[in-house]
Computed example of a mutant assay.
Amino acid sequence: MTSRRLALLGLAAATLAAMPLATLAQGYPDKPLRIMVGASPGGGTDILARLLAEKFAADFKQSVVVENRPGASNTIAAEVTARAAADGTTLLLATNTGQAIAPHLLKLKFDPLKDLQPVGLVAVMPNVLVVPATSPYKTVKDLVGAMGSGDLKYASSGIGSTQHIAGEAFALATNGKATHVPYKGSSQAHVDVISGEVTMMFDSTSSAMGQIRAGKFRPLAVTAERRAAELPDVPTLAEQGIRNADVQTWYGLYVTAGTPKASVDKLVAELGRVLKLPDVQARIKGLGGEVGTISLEQFSEMNRSEFDRYGKLVRDANIKAEGS
């Protein structure tokens, strides 16, 4: 090889090395994407992830696959994302379960605040207290009256999930007792709720609405400041005299920390565009939720403040992971 050609190759390599990450990321995404989900198929997180995947695939002209990695309070999927290449091809649709609660209960091998880059808030869903349609409990008052026996069980999608926290907050607020039965996802818990194996469940409206509409769940209350638009006849806990038990589920999109800013900016813009689509808004509202409308800066601040808020709640209520 001639010295001139070597010099040209060296110049090209030097130019590429000096090129800013923003320039290198202009072609993003140039390969398939995956959205990690820390819950089983069929639950609220999975439903929203597949909705985003469909829209992203059409706009980015790339395949977008949803990968379910349930378990460990949604943190398995989060760890996969945290350890992935920082090229923007591995996304995470997370909830406050994995981002704000589990880190205070489990020993994680990653830092959710440092190793995951927020992209945007997707939706906020109230949790709804449900019992089987065949349950003898018709109202929250009926349920509270039976909790003194200590024989009742409540299901959740996992230790440290918002459903778990909601159940503990409810027990504290009512001075009642109920045994926590964790599952690897809402859809698995639904089977035992419907059969009556467990007494009740606090579930996000996004995953519970299907069973409510099918007549398999009886909703008794929503854990929010106001009634859910899709459940106008279901009162809030506060309306029924129970305070300090409002726990909602929020869903946020994240990418591996260190992903080039230009790629993150593209994701932020794409998520914002998708969340304004009428069919997407109708789908989220149909799940009983509210569409995320805050900026990236506001969501980043929320990500930190929610981490701190739930940490205090876990400590104040002395909530611990089973076996700890």
Rank of each mutant, 00 (worst) to 15 (best):
M19Q: 11
E67D: 10
E54S: 11
N68H: 15
L48P: 03
T23R: 08
T45V: 11
D59R: 15
G27L: 02
D59Q: 15
T23K: 05
P20G: 07
A58L: 13
K55C: 01
P70R: 09
A58K: 13
K31R: 15
A57T: 02
D30C: 02
N74G: 06
G38V: 02
L51T: 10
L24Y: 05
N74L: 10
G42E: 01
A39W: 00
T75N: 06
A25R: 00
V37T: 02
A72E: 12
Y28Q: 06
V66P: 03
V66F: 10
P20M: 05
L51V: 04
L48C: 01
D30G: 09
S73W: 01
G44F: 08
A57R: 04
E54Q: 12
N74S: 13
K55T: 03
G38E: 03
L33A: 00
I35K: 07
N74M: 14
G42A: 11
P41K: 07
G27H: 05
S63P: 07
K61R: 13
R69Y: 10
E54R: 14
V66N: 03
I35N: 06
R69W: 12
A39Q: 11
G42D: 10
G71T: 07
M36S: 10
A77V: 02
G43T: 03
K55D: 14
A25E: 05
L21T: 12
A39E: 10
R50N: 14
A78I: 01
L48G: 04
P29T: 08
K55G: 01
I35C: 10
N74W: 09
L52I: 00
K31V: 04
M19R: 07
L33N: 02
K55A: 13
Q62I: 02
Q62S: 03
R69P: 00
R34S: 11
N74P: 00
A53L: 06
A39H: 06
Y28R: 03
E67C: 04
I35Y: 08
A49N: 10
A49P: 02
I76P: 00
E67F: 10
G44N: 11
D46C: 07
K55S: 12
K31I: 00
K61Q: 14
M36Q: 14
V66K: 05
F60K: 04
G44E: 03
A58E: 13
V37N: 01
I35E: 04
R69L: 14
P20C: 04
T23A: 15
R50Q: 14
L24E: 08
L21C: 04
T23V: 15
R50W: 03
E67L: 14
L33W: 06
G44R: 10
G43H: 01
S63V: 00
I35G: 08
Q26W: 07
A53R: 05
N74A: 14
M19D: 02
P70D: 11
K55N: 11
N68C: 09
S40V: 12
L52S: 09
T23M: 12
T45I: 08
I47A: 13
F56I: 15
V65T: 15
F60I: 03
I47Y: 12
L52Q: 01
V66Q: 02
V66L: 10
A39T: 13
P41G: 12
A49C: 11
L52T: 07
I47C: 00
E67W: 11
P29Y: 06
K55M: 04
D59V: 09
